[in-house]
Nucleic acid binder design. Structure first.
Length: 1019
RNA sequence: GCUCGGAUGGUGGAAUUGGUAGACACGUUGGACUUAAAAUCCAAUGAUCAGCAACGGUCGUGCGGGUUCAAGUCCCGCUCCGAGUACCA
């Protein structure tokens, strides 16, 4: 009976599904274990071989834990809101929900065929109203909370109101907006309800605020940084300006320190912790207040070097700084306004890229040095970022290279305040080993002492204080998109009100197009039914908005607006939707209790499962999902909604599986410069494709394991040939042509057209493939061939390099795929996909199958196994168990191979060995293991079979092959009893004739004997 | 620039944490079976020198030093590659 993997795999997949083998119970006497994968975004391209890598690893672990007697929760779901479905909807008009549904079906089918042990009864989809109801609910909880710095936790906003009404805000120590004035209880009580709401909004953990965004007026939309090229929109080339827009934000900055501190409590890879640490970017320094001359106003700056305060020779503000207009003198007004306009036109990215150009302008105003009282000119410069610190710096040119460059450029003074340091060429920015000079009372002090003294001095005159600053900014939570969670928010007189919990979910409305409106509103602005009726508590038609008169609607609104709002009417709903990370920031709780429609997770279920014990996913989420999730969990913990402070106890990053893509060069534009100074762009239509070969004269390649070189003569360089011919042609056309410049671009083509060894393209297939390639002209090598460039990169539909697991499953089976993906190399490492070694893994499984069969018939003997076989088995148990616990799956696959090879040689057919072996391999190759298990006479699944226990006694050896080395070089081995002591070993070794031969009569200087390990003779 | 990670045969990768470098697999070569192919099995396979023979010699883990009886592994100084991040005051 040979190994019919297709039948076996289909049979057991059906069995698992029918028997709900992997359904987890929410109560059990067994200890719990929660294994989770980062849930996928169901893209149209389907699952490629890179996706399952992490899933296979976590599945092995989950199955291992079941054998070890744990109640395992191993769920899966879909992060189903997102941009690709929306883009597709814009192009085709198809509703994203339908596309998403189709994609999910395909994903599920692909996942099922790999044999994962997911508990599908707990599946979640972030785009389902039953799910996003709770995302909206959490949003409301954030809105209903503020951050109390005294207790260092989030608290209910109602508490804050109580405090305000009894003692004002004098004693409040909160993380909040900066522009809050002090008020007393009487003030508060006298405020109108609208004023109260405005104030409270500045304290809430999710709040509306003006945020600077990249706005494209022509397209009527906000653009992300990467959608802007050279200051214009990538699509259409329209101007992009930085603009302030009102957006929902999350006050994640309140949690900066806790997010940093608690990294120590979780078992995550160090690089990932490092990148979160850098992202949070804590820096210690001081806030210093500079008085503006002839003004009541101050400029606050943040500095990490208060010790250099006497080195300040000017100040620089970000162009967006709020005081700029106010302080600018009339003479400088034009220059300043000009500069601000110019810098507003530059995108943030452009500004960052262009670090070398120094620009700035003097405001005409002066500040007063808080300690010396000197006049300090105030400049603006775009090297100062509005978003970091206070958007203003005290410039110390001798100690900071940027300040130094700025000072040099504009001829500002560069006073030296460092003892014995040369600053004639560049700033001296080292902190250690400096002695401060020319600095009044700081002179002669070290960096450390001076820093402390300076802060004390500033605090004494109320001109500054020690401060810790974080790079982490509050997260913008609004997106001008359709396919996302609607905010449960309506507006009364411009102030946001929450829809009460019992009326959730607020379902996404239908729209006729998924584009922004002509007025520049987000797609939800197109919805005709998108107004909230507070009488009926339901969505009504927008038309109703105009029909209902609101008589002083703000008058009686309760501050929070959630419960008992007495203002009844029809109000507009929020038009933005939530970002992609909303739904993924809490989904791990939902799996614990996926069908609960009373709570986002029940208290019992959460207390039982706590949090995720093992989380596997890509490191690209280091500063996104993994940070936001931690933030939300901490918030939920503060408000008593969950009992854990962290979502994921242990995290493993699986490396990406890369694909080989083929790219070819084409020329579509030529810039023609003419002698009269004008120029013209010629469009090459159809474009011309130029073979890549010939750039290097000798190209190395590997073919069937053999290396070779390919020699190409210069005459074969098609690029030069093309340019020469084309230029000749153009000279005939243009009499006044001066020079030509060819613009090339690289295009991805289907990898299956390219011979991986020679990189030669099958030109006929290419031409038949897409109309563009059919119409194009080709410049081939002199041998008439077209070559592509190979590149190893991320698998993606647009690069035509996606390898689906489906073919592998049908050709070799899921068990082979699972083991092969593990065998490829260490889990964390990125590696290119290649199927070269897959036959090795497949024949291993066939070989293992044969161990249990004799001439096509299943045979196991009940006799006692040989000591050799028992030793092989127990060696394997030991190694595989250790490997799983260390997530070293590639080496455990090798161990299985060694084990089967040895047992085959031993002709082992005893149940005593073969039954435990089936359990050992079950996590890796569950289908074949189930089949063998049932043939071994078991009528239930192998899933919960007890994991074999390693027994040292089978491995005990009496002798060892000692390596005998001379001066550290191993010359031969000797079999010696392990019972021998040092001296006896030395005696035996010295007595051996081979030793004497090596020594050639010399007497060894020293003999090192490490019993059980090695003998080294030094001579 | 800064932070982190890496470099081992023709290839993917092992190496008990300082103790026989190259496990396991692919590929390649030779052989067996077969009319033939596929499949399967057996043997060889780091480079190099020598040779009738072998438990032969030399070199060998990116480069240069060092510590040690012993270094892929530890220390110092580089080179190259990859990832993240960046005018962060």
């Amino acid at each position: 009976m040979s190994y019919h993997f297709n039948e076996i795999e289909a049979k057991w997949q059906k069995y698992w599904s029918e028997n709900q083998t992997f359904k987890a119970k929410n109560n059990s006497d067994l200890p719990k274990f929660y294994v989770l994968d980062m849930f996928p975004y169901p893209s149209g391209a389907g699952l490629h071989v890179g996706h399952p890598l992490g899933y296979i690893a976590s599945d092995i672990y989950a199955r291992f834990k079941r054998h070890k007697g744990f109640n395992v929760l191993h769920p899966q779901g879909y992060d189903s809101f997102g941009l690709p479905a929306e883009q597709y909807a814009i192009q085709t008009g198809q509703h994203p929900a339908l596309t998403t549904e189709d994609n999910i079906k395909r994903y599920r089918q692909q996942l099922d065929q790999i044999g994962f042990s997911f508990d599908w009864s707990r599946e979640v989809r972030t785009s389902e109203p039953e799910y996003y109801k709770w995302t909206q609910w959490i949003f409301i909880q954030l809105f209903e909370s503020w951050y109390d710095k005294n207790n260092d936790k989030a608290s209910a906003i109602s508490e804050l109101e109580t405090i305000f009404s009894t003692e004002g805000n004098a004693n409040i120590n909160a993380v909040c907006d900066e522009d809050i004035n002090n008020f007393s209880a009487d003030d508060w009580n006298a405020y109108s309800s609208e004023e109260k709401q405005e104030i409270l909004l500045k304290y809430r953990l999710t709040y509306l605020a003006e945020t600077e965004v990249n706005w494209c007026p022509e397209l009527g939309t906000v653009l992300a940084n990467d959608e802007i090229v050279n200051g214009v929109s990538e699509r259409g080339g329209y101007a992009v300006i930085r603009k302030k827009m009102t957006q929902w934000s999350m006050r994640i900055s309140a949690y900066a320190q806790r997010l940093l501190d608690d990294l120590e409590t979780i078992d995550w890879p160090q690089p990932l912790k490092d990148s979160q640490t850098n992202w949070i970017g804590r820096s210690k320094g001081a806030l210093v207040k500079f008085k503006i001359q002839d003004s009541e106003k101050n400029i606050d700056v943040f500095t990490t070097r208060p010790d250099t305060i006497f080195g300040v020779s000017f100040m620089t503000l970000a162009p967006e700084h709020e005081l700029v207009h106010e302080i600018t003198t009339p003479e400088q007004k034009d220059a300043v306004t000009n500069y601000i306009e110019k810098s507003a036109k530059r995108s943030e990215r452009e500004r960052m890229a262009d670090v070398k150009t120094i620009s700035g302008v003097f405001t005409g105003a002066y500040a007063l040095h808080p300690l010396s009282g000197e006049e300090i000119p105030i400049w603006i410069g775009d090297y100062v970022l509005a978003g970091y610190g206070t958007g203003a710096v005290m410039s110390v040119p001798c100690g900071d290279q940027r300040d130094y460059d700025f000072a040099k450029h504009f001829g500002l003074p560069i006073p030296n305040i460092f003892e014995g340091k040369d600053i004639s060429e560049e700033a001296y920015s080292e902190k250690e080993g400096v002695i401060i000079a020319n600095s009044d009372f700081l002179t002669g002090l070290s960096y450390k002492e001076a820093t402390q003294k300076a802060i004390e001095a500033l605090e004494a005159i109320n001109a500054g204080k020690g401060k810790i600053n974080y790079r982490l900014r509050d997260a913008v939570f609004s997106r001008q998109r359709y396919w996302g969670e609607p905010f449960p928010v309506y507006y009364v007189n411009g102030l946001p009100q929450m829809i009460a919990e019992e009326h959730l979910p607020l379902k996404l409305p239908e729209v006729e197009k998924y584009l922004p409106t002509e007025e520049g509103e987000p797609p939800l602005g197109r919805a005709t039914n998108w107004a909230w009726d507070t009488n009926k508590n339901e969505i009504v038609s927008n038309e109703m908005l105009n029909q209902v008169q609101h008589d002083e609607p703000n008058k009686d609104v309760t501050p929070s607006g959630v419960e008992g709002s007495s203002v009844k009417g029809i109000y507009p709903l929020e038009l933005n939707t939530m970002p992609g990370w909303a739904g993924s920031s809490w989904y791990f709780f939902r799996y614990m209790d996926a069908d609960n429609d009373e709570h986002f997770v029940s208290e019992e279920a959460q207390k039982y499962w706590e949090n995720v014990d093992l989380y596997i996913g890509g490191s690209e989420h280091a500063t996104g999902h993994l940070l936001y999730s931690r933030f939300w969990v901490k918030f939920l913990y503060d408000r008593g909604m969950v009992t854990v402070k962290e979502p994921f106890k242990k995290l493993i990053n699986q490396g990406m599986i890369l694909g080989m893509s083929a790219i070819i060069r084409r020329n579509s534009e030529i810039l023609v410069k003419k002698t009269d100074g004008t120029s013209e762009i010629i469009k090459n239509d159809p474009p011309v494709f130029i073979s890549e070969r010939g750039v290097e004269a000798n190209a190395e390649f590997t073919e069937n394991g053999k290396r070779g070189t390919m020699n190409l003569s210069v005459s074969e360089i098609p690029l030069i040939k093309y340019e020469e011919e084309k230029e000749f042609e153009l000279r005939e056309q243009y009499e006044n042509l001066q020079s030509t410049a060819f613009k090339y671009e690289w295009l991805h083509v289907d990898v299956s057209f390219v011979n991986p060894a020679t990189r030669e393209i099958d030109l006929q297939k290419l031409k038949n493939w897409q109309s563009e390639f059919g119409k194009a002209k080709y410049y081939l090598t002199s041998s008439g061939k077209m070559y592509a460039k190979n590149e190893v990169e991320k698998m993606s539909k647009s690069k035509y390099n996606v390898v689906n697991p489906d073919e592998i499953c049908s050709q070799y089976g899921a068990d082979t795929l699972r083991m092969y993906e593990m065998f490829l190399g260490p889990l964390e490492q990125a590696k290119p996909w290649n199927t070269a070694g897959i036959t090795g893994v497949h024949s291993f499984l066939k070989k293992m199958w044969k161990l249990y069969h004799n001439d096509e018939v299943f045979v196991v003997s009940e006799e006692k196994a040989s000591p050799d076989s028992m030793k092989t088995l127990h060696k394997t148990i030991k190694k595989v168990t250790e490997d799983i616990e260390e997530f070293s799956f590639n080496t455990s696959v090798s161990t299985f191979m060694i084990c089967v090879n040895e047992l085959t040689v031993q002709k082992c057919d005893q149940r005593e060995v073969l039954e435990p072996l089936a359990i050992l391999i079950a996590p890796y190759a569950p289908h074949i293991a189930e089949e063998l298990w049932s043939k071994l006479g078991h009528d239930s699944s192998i899933t919960t079979a007890e994991y074999p226990v390693f027994e040292e006694s089978f491995l005990v050896e009496s002798t060892k092959q000692y390596p005998i080395s001379f001066n550290g070089k191993m010359r031969f081995t000797m079999e010696l009893s392990l019972e021998l002591g040092k001296n006896e070993i030395e005696k035996a070794v010295m007595a051996d004739e081979r030793t004497q031969k090596q020594l050639e009569g010399r007497t060894p200087k020293k003999v090192i004997v490490v019993p059980g390990k090695i003998v080294n003779i030094v001579g």
